[in-house]
Computed example of a mutant assay.
Amino acid sequence: MEIISLTYPLQECPAVLKDKKIAVAIGHFDGVHRGHQNVIRQAVQIAKQSGALSAVMTFLPHPKEVLGQGDQYFSCLTPPGEKQALFAELGVDIMIVVKFDLTFAAISPQQFVDEVLRPLHAEHVVVGFDFTFGSKGQGNPEMMRTMGSPDIKVDIVDPLYENGEKVSSTYIRSALEKGDIALATTLLGRPYELDGIVVHGDARGRTIGFPTANVGLSKPFITPCLGVFAIKAKVAGKTYSGVLNHGMKPTFNKEEIRPVLEAHLFDFHQDIYGEPISLEFHSFIRPEKKFGSVHELIEQIGADAKQAKQFFGLA
């Protein structure tokens, strides 16, 4: 998959598109959840049928971040690198990343069609039913269909529902905040995943029989609620099952500090400080709590590990 970074106003059509047409799915696509996948797969299918290149157009940073409409958008479900990998898995040929700044935010819906889509040789656009574009989100899919006629066709994808609620990034964030990992997995169509680096902690885990990998996040990921989770970790070229605590370590800490991610991997004995690690969240085991003694903590960690092993069919 090829990556094209663009800034408005476009100076010229990117070389890879000079003599090509594209079928393009447009959206921010944070999470690349099942609803997003429906939009993207439709663009990929149309491209295959028409002989065009399949493309995804997304925006960086998040429009609401630039427009000051929410601090929560500084963190995301899928930072750009993760998004790129997921688009590639869906068979996308080209990822178009448009810099979202105040200049781009001010263009009219008609300018978006005439000065962005047409110069990129878009012959088919696929968007979700609630997609908006242009200054103050004045444009909607039906307007795009009218403005793009006759050379740009527009497909509008209906929403996808789960439990009577629209599948959305907001719904996934809410599920993670509540520790509903099963729901988040269903909405995403895959386990929720974080990437980071194994960093030095206080090394207390090994003294109580449960050595842990302390994970420093490498990107601004949304993190699940505080608590204990059954996880799979990809590190040093292999995948391991394990149990992870996301919390303040209240048994040891007297003052509240920022939460940490500590993963205990089953049957793992390597030194992996400084190694990249990927964490998949598979099940919520329990909320974080403070114990009266280190002995009680050790007993609970043992019980947590047993529950995670049972979840993965290891016990």
Rank of each mutant, 00 (worst) to 15 (best):
I40R: 03
P63M: 07
I26T: 14
D19L: 14
H36T: 09
V56D: 02
C13F: 08
A25S: 14
A55I: 07
G31S: 04
K21L: 14
H28W: 07
T58V: 13
G35K: 01
Q11T: 15
L53H: 05
D19E: 01
M57K: 03
L17E: 04
L10H: 09
G35M: 09
L10E: 02
F59T: 02
V39T: 13
A47E: 01
P61D: 00
P63F: 03
V44I: 14
I26A: 15
L17D: 02
R41H: 11
A15V: 13
I22M: 12
Q49R: 02
K20V: 06
A25Y: 03
H36P: 14
V56E: 03
L53C: 10
S50L: 13
I40N: 09
Q37A: 15
G51R: 00
V32E: 00
V32F: 03
S54Y: 00
G31T: 08
H62L: 04
T58W: 02
A47K: 02
N38P: 11
D30R: 00
L17M: 03
Q49E: 06
K21V: 10
I26W: 03
A52M: 12
V44N: 09
A43Y: 12
P61G: 03
A55T: 11
P63K: 06
A23E: 03
C13K: 15
G35P: 05
F29T: 00
R34N: 07
R34E: 11
L10Y: 04
K20L: 07
P63Y: 04
I40A: 10
I40Y: 04
G27W: 02
L53A: 03
H28R: 12
R34A: 15
E12Y: 13
L17I: 06
D19W: 06
Q49Y: 01
N38I: 15
K21Y: 06
V44E: 08
